[in-house]
Structures are given as structure tokens and as C-alpha cells.
Design a protein around this nucleic acid. Structure first.
Lengths: 237, 237
DNA sequence: CCGAATCGAGAGCAGTGCTCTCTGTTTGAC
DNA sequence: GTCAAACAGAGAGCACTGCTCTCGATTCGG
């Protein structure tokens, strides 16, 4: 679509778009989800109406930030998993990914709030966001699948849970997409711990741990280890 | 402080305050966290500046709504627990409370977002909110304590986890306040499942389950049952 | 009964998202 | 090269927001 040698205008436009997003991210840190386009425009030394040459509306800017955030946290998880020297221990991989997710969330709290916090009022997430949104959880799916293949994913000790046909089918669909070969029950456990993990991040970032737990890092690590056991992840002999 | 027979003015003022909050709650349903004082005033047929006779600022109104929301969800949990015919089964109590929390959250989604979602930008929670905020979790503490006293709270099968002195002390403090007699490890498990529970609610309410799980009620019930087992809650013989 | 407290109305200020119009520049086809 | 078309930014303006201030009208307590 773009010409081989990007025209000056196209390149300037791309840079300008990035600058707007960068400034918006900065504003996000102080102002939260209701960022001001006019503040962004002031920050960039332009007039507010000029922003509309790059983003059709404030929601469009937010959408761009949301997509970037999903990709960023997804990439953080992926590189944490990929950069392990040995990938044969599912528990170690799980812990590495969990801590990487937390580190990203702490370093980018307002962006985390944007994607995992309460949705902004009138905002409806467009379809462009659903693909990047699944990127982080794909990492967990891979760990589960590898653990299963290596015989390091224990079954539910309490026996097979009973699912309705509907729920079983949905769990099957999730498993087929994220962690082929894994049973519905194991996939359910995976989603439960995934939910717990992000619950822990939200509790920490949204102030629910204030005046309760100060040893945040250790507390998170404890949670991650405990729920790794809950899923049934085991380290090799 | 108020005279025995409330003066007309005092009573009207109380009613007016309630009407403002009620209208604000309605606005919250459509507009999200950035509710408009002017819209509230229009809804009540008054001029915007009149609102300031009742609430010093928009944040003050939000604070009042937050306190009400904490009390409401806390009361929902309390009555769910208290209205059980038999209270000897900790698992049944846990499930009843969990479903009551979910029911309240679904029925009052914007208020749930207000207290458990991303904090509103410039808003700093005043001290008045911390007491009502702990009301829901007190219910879980009671269930844990009763289960422990009745010998229905299993120990961690994986052996005693190791905590640093700091974290152990903090867990001890939480246990002493919420569930006296319960060990630090069990209290930690309780907080983990509490985190999971609200993670599940946030996932469901904030759209993270869209296009993934449609059997919401059953999925939540499954999660609640599984994590009840994780804490170590058992039903009596 | 009367001064004081309270209440609502209205105007106004600074800020917001967004639209429209107008100028100047860059682009790509001829 | 030329030139119409696309594009980028500036500026004014609209309707909205939270909030402050002033000014009458009402109600309160001593």
C-alpha cells in the first residue's frame, strides 16, 4: 500500500502519529483514562483540531493505545517465556511469565488499567482489539500444552468435574485454540489461575492491597506458585 | 447531633441528598465513572450550582457513591450468609456468598466498576471508604474461622509454605482481624481465592469473557467450587 | 421577632471534544 | 515541468463540563 520508498509526507505522518500516542501515554499516567486531546495537542505544540488529521476521535486514539498495550504486555510475556535458558520446566516458565506480566503492569499502570480495568464509559472495543487481546493468554496456553505433552500436567485430584454440554463445548473450543490436547477440565483450571493472576494484578494496582500487604513481590510470587500447583503443573524430575 | 424532631429543612436536605445520589447512580449506568453533575441537576430539575449545597465537589459525590456501593455489596454478602437455613456447611456458605457477590455485581455493574475497577483518574480514596471496603471480605473471614473451628478447614496438602518474617506478620495481622485462629498459610489461601473470585467478576463484567465463555453462571459456579476446594473448605459428614 | 444560616437561581470562567472553513504545502498523474 | 487533487495545520466556533460567585428567598434558632 505504501510506496516502496516512503514519501516524506508518509514518514512524517507516521512519526507524528507515534508522537501523539507517546504524548497521550504520558498524559494517561497523570490523568487516567479521560485524557485530554487538547493537552496532547498543547504538549506537541499544535492546535487541537490538528490531532483529528491523525485520529478520527478520542476513542480512536484510545483504541490505538489499547491495541499497543495488549501487544506490549503480550510481547513481555512472550519474551519472558522465550528467553528462559531451559524451557523444560513448566513451573519455571509459568513463574517467569507471571512475574513478567506483573513487571509490565507495574511499569505501565495506566495502560494496564486501560485494558484490564473498568471499560471507559461510552467506549465500545472495536474488532481490531480482540486479536492482540488474546496474545498474553496464548503464552499460558503454550505452557499448558507443552506441560501436557511432557506429562507434567497432573489431572484434577478431585476427579473429573461435570460440565454441561454448552460449557464443555466452550472449554473445548478454548483448549483447541490455546492448548491443543489439553482436557476441558485442565483448560478450566488454566483459565481459573489466569483469572486469579489478573485478579492479583488488579488488586495490587487498583489499591485493594493498600494497608493490607506491603510485601507485594513476595506475596505475588507466593500466589503464582500456589496456583501453579492448582493447575497441576509439575517440574521434571 | 440532629435534633430529636428533625427540622423540615434537615429532612428535606436528607431526601435531596438521596435523590442526588439516586440520580447519579442512574447516570452512572449510562455514562460510566465520568458522570456529569449538570446532567444530574437537569434530571432533578435544578440548576447545577445547587448540587454544591449537598456535595462539595464531584469527587465528594463519587465518594458517597463508593461508600454506598461497598456497604451494599457487603450487605448482600452478609445476608446471603445469614439467611442460609443451615450454617454448618462452610462450602455451602462460601458458594452462597460467592453467588450473592456476583448477583450484586451483575445488577450494579457500574457501581462494581467504581469500587473494584480502575480508580478514577485524579481521585484519591478518603479514609471514610476503608472501613466499608473491608465489609465484604469480613464475611469470608467468618466462614474461614467457623470452618477452622469446626475442623472443616484442611491444611495445605503441599506442606507449610515458607514466608518471610514480614509477609508472615502481615498475613498474621489479616488473619487476626478477619479469621482469628486461622494459620497464616490458610489465610493466604483465603486471600488467593478471594482474589480469584473478584478476578472472575471483573473478567465477566469488564468484557474479558466476551466471545469466550457464554455459560457465565455455570462457569462462575465451577470456579467457586474449585477454589473452595483449593482453600481447603470441606462439607461436614 | 429578627439576625443568621441555608437554599436555589443565574451569570460567568476556564476547560473539554469536535466541526467547519481557510491557507499553505506535498503528491502523483499527465 | 504543470497542475489539479490530496493533505496538513491554524483558527473560530458550538455545545458541553466542573466549579465559583453573587443575589434574592426561605427557614432556622434564640
Amino acid at each position: 500500500m505504501a510506496p516502496r520508498a516512503a514519501s516524506i509526507r508518509a514518514r512524517v505522518r507516521a512519526e507524528m502519529t507515534d508522537e501523539i500516542k507517546a504524548s497521550a501515554r504520558r498524559q494517561l499516567a497523570t490523568g487516567g483514562a479521560n485524557l485530554s486531546l487538547r493537552a496532547v495537542s498543547r504538549d506537541l505544540g499544535m492546535v487541537s483540531s490538528a490531532i483529528y488529521r491523525y485520529f478520527a476521535s478520542r476513542d480512536d486514539l484510545l483504541t490505538a493505545l489499547i491495541i499497543d498495550a495488549y501487544n506490549a504486555i503480550g510481547e513481555a510475556a512472550e519474551t519472558a517465556d522465550a528467553s528462559l535458558t531451559t524451557r523444560s520446566d513448566p513451573v519455571a516458565r509459568w513463574l517467569a511469565v507471571a512475574h513478567a506480566l506483573r513487571a509490565w503492569a507495574l511499569a505501565h499502570a495506566p495502560e494496564y488499567a486501560l485494558i484490564y480495568g473498568s471499560p471507559v464509559p461510552g467506549y465500545a472495543a472495536p474488532a481490531d482489539t480482540i486479536s492482540p487481546a488474546s496474545r498474553p493468554i496464548l503464552v499460558m496456553g503454550l505452557i499448558l500444552a507443552d506441560a501436557h505433552a511432557a506429562g507434567l500436567l497432573s489431572d484434577d485430584p478431585a476427579g473429573r468435574p461435570e460440565f454441561s454440554a454448552d460449557l464443555r463445548a466452550e472449554l473445548r473450543q478454548v483448549a483447541d485454540r490455546l492448548a491443543p490436547g489439553v482436557s476441558e477440565a485442565a483448560m478450566a483450571r488454566g483459565m481459573i489461575v489466569w483469572t486469579q493472576l489478573f485478579g492479583a494484578l488488579s488488586f495490587e494496582l487498583f489499591g485493594q492491597l493498600n494497608n493490607v500487604i506491603d510485601a507485594r513481590e513476595e506475596w505475588f510470587d507466593h500466589q503464582a506458585r500456589m496456583i501453579a500447583g492448582f493447575v497441576g503443573l509439575r517440574s521434571p524430575e
